[in-house]
């Protein structure tokens, strides 16, 4: 026993030397990335959080004064004796923006997952010209959002838009719909464009997952005469689940900070204003840099919490499957 221990003790320093050396070189390789990340992501984030506690304005950013949590919540006593609550946490416009963003995220990510899955299953099948179709499907994803949003603005225009023209021609609608203007359809229009644009991204990630599944499992299922639907639910879906979870998290985070699409398609519409649009308005239009920074900080916190929640849920279900 003691000999074993001493031999381990003799081995340890040498091993940990190697370990230390490896660790050192690992850190060395990581260093450039860490420096860049701190400079382009960490520092601005810290600055934004700091400005959220000040009354900074763009015209006088050096003169920012610390006001504590005033941007988030403050109580004002009016000379008349009435009390007034102010700040982000009691601003109905902010909560409306939060609700809009969450609603947009849930609806569009769900639709994108379903359509992405269908597209991926089709593209995974063997057929002639598959390479061309795969490339063609990616086109909406390759177009910059600003360009596609502007393009859709014209297509969705109520008077000379092609969408209304086609729907009228097919007899599906009786009169022209004001897609981006009407409060009932503004959000639908935004979701349509987002689904059109990001379904290829979903499809691509799911397709990658599909191609990881070994073909012999399907052969075995075929020999056993399992119904194709059952194959999908019992084999395909569980096996691509990790890829699917990653894809959904990516898309979810992306759409929580949605800005460009809404800003171009339905600027300033109450029904579609997202958290980012709200924050930008205060940062630049209203010259309340501090207040806007507070909104950005809350947006960051929301996204961080959602990410943690998603990862936790994703892991639980994956391990649940393993059992």
């Amino acid at each position: 026993m003691s000999t074993v221990r001493s031999s381990i003790a003799a081995l340890l320093p040498r091993r940990s030397d190697l370990r230390r050396q490896r660790l050192r070189s690992a850190w060395l390789f990581l260093l450039p990335m860490l420096v860049v990340l701190t400079a382009v992501a960490g520092w601005p984030l810290v600055r934004t959080i700091y400005f959220g506690f000040t009354d900074a304005s763009l015209t006088n950013i050096e003169g920012a004064r610390w006001i504590g949590i005033g941007n988030y919540f403050s109580v004002l006593s009016l000379p008349s004796g009435a009390t007034l609550y102010d700040g982000l946490l009691v601003d109905p416009a902010w909560w409306r923006a939060v609700w809009n963003t969450v609603r947009f995220t849930v609806v569009s990510v769900t639709l994108e997952t379903i359509f992405g899955m269908i597209v991926a299953l089709v593209l995974n099948a063997e057929f002639k010209g598959r390479a061309v179709v795969r490339a063609a499907v990616l086109i909406p994803w390759a177009i910059p959002t600003i360009v596609s949003a502007k393009m859709w603005t014209w297509m969705l225009n109520d008077q000379f838009g092609i969408i209304n023209d086609m729907l009228l021609g097919l007899g599906l609608i009786g009169q022209k719909i004001a897609w981006t203007a009407s409060p009932d359809t503004a959000m639908i229009a935004v979701v349509i464009v987002d689904v059109w644009k990001t379904t290829p991204f979903m499809a691509l990630l799911i397709l990658a997952g599909l191609q990881m599944i070994p073909g012999d499992i399907y052969e075995a299922a075929e020999i056993d005469g399992v119904h194709p639907l059952k194959v999908f639910w019992k084999i395909t879906l569980p096996l691509i689940r990790p890829a699917l979870v990653v894809a959904v998290i990516f898309r979810g985070l992306d759409s929580l900070r949605v800005f460009d699409l809404i800003y171009v398609l339905t600027p300033n519409n109450l029904q579609t204003k997202s958290m980012s649009v709200y924050a930008r308005e205060f940062l630049f239009d209203f010259d309340k840099f501090g207040y806007g920074s507070a909104a950005s900080t809350l947006l960051f916190l929301t996204i961080a919490l959602m990410t943690i929640a998603c990862i936790a849920v994703g892991r639980v279900s994956v391990s649940g499957e393993a059992r």
Binding site: N157, D158, K176, A178, T180
Partner: peptide, 8 residues
């Protein structure tokens, strides 16, 4: 006025 006016 066209309903789309609200986006013009």
């Amino acid at each position: 006025s066209p309903p789309g006016m609200l986006a013009y």
